[in-house]
Simulated scan of single mutants.
Amino acid sequence: MTQLIPYLAFDNTKDALSYYEEVFGATDVQRLPVGKEQAGQFGVDPEQADNMTMHSEFKVAGHTLYAADKFNKAGDFNSSISLSINWQKDNAEETKAMTELFERIAAHPETTVDMPIGEQFWGGVMGALKDKYGVDWMFNGN
């Protein structure tokens, strides 16, 4: 089975992982720091290598995401796309869980809510927000 897994880039993935655990309830968090022997390959000080992340994985609402440090690459990669969490709105348990997750994230002081979650004219439930790292999230119940 093939998969498409979003791969996010952060200035400090180690801190971002803590944020996603606290605010989004991220689970199954794994982090692979840069080893001192790989520091030169990544262009980082060997003494700082352990604080740098070459790869990480975590789950939000059961969906896997990957992340790593930017390693001095320019650009605001994360604001170029939106991540959409979709569910069946007829499933009361899923709707409750996704609404509660949206509201928990929305309540964080560094979150910008673009669209409060609610019933939409097309019959679905939708909400949109931007997290503290500039990642756009859409919550979409159809």
Score class of each variant (00 low, 15 high):
Y20C: 04
Y20N: 09
T64M: 15
S82H: 13
A74V: 12
D76G: 12
Q48R: 06
V34W: 02
V29Q: 07
S82N: 05
Q41H: 15
Y20R: 01
H55D: 09
K36F: 00
T13G: 10
E47I: 00
F71K: 11
N86H: 09
F42H: 06
N72E: 14
F42N: 07
G75H: 02
V60E: 09
K14F: 00
V23E: 05
A16H: 07
K73I: 01
I81S: 11
K14I: 00
N78F: 01
N86K: 13
E47L: 00
V60P: 00
L65P: 08
L65E: 13
A74Y: 10
K89I: 04
Y66G: 03
H63Q: 15
W87C: 03
D45M: 02
L65R: 08
G40V: 03
M54S: 14
P33S: 12
Q30L: 14
D15F: 04
A39Q: 02
G62A: 02
M54P: 04
N91G: 03
I81L: 13
Y19A: 05
S79L: 01
V34F: 05
S56M: 04
V23C: 10
R31C: 06
F77C: 03
W87V: 10
E37V: 04
H63C: 08
G25Q: 08
E57G: 10
L17A: 11
E47V: 00
N91D: 15
I85T: 04
K36Y: 10
D69C: 12
K14R: 14
G25H: 14
I81Q: 05
Q88C: 12
Q30W: 10
T13E: 06
K89Y: 03
P46C: 05
D69F: 11
Q38Y: 09
S79R: 12
A67S: 14
N72P: 01
K70F: 10
Y66M: 15
S82K: 11
N51I: 00
S56Q: 06
A67P: 04
V60A: 08
V29L: 01
N51E: 13
S79Y: 03
Y66D: 05
M52S: 09
P46A: 04
A74K: 14
A68K: 06
G75I: 03
G43A: 02
V60C: 14
I85W: 08
K89H: 10
T53C: 14
G75Q: 08
A39I: 08
T64S: 13
T53K: 03
G75D: 00
G25V: 07
K14V: 00
N91Y: 00
Y19Q: 12
A49D: 04
E93S: 11
D90K: 11
F42Y: 15
T95K: 15
E47Q: 12
V29E: 05
G62T: 01
E37Q: 14
V23A: 07
Q88I: 01
V60T: 02
G35E: 15
H63F: 10
A16C: 13
K36C: 04
G75N: 00
V44P: 11
E47F: 02
A92H: 05
E93H: 11
L17S: 09
E47T: 09
N86C: 10
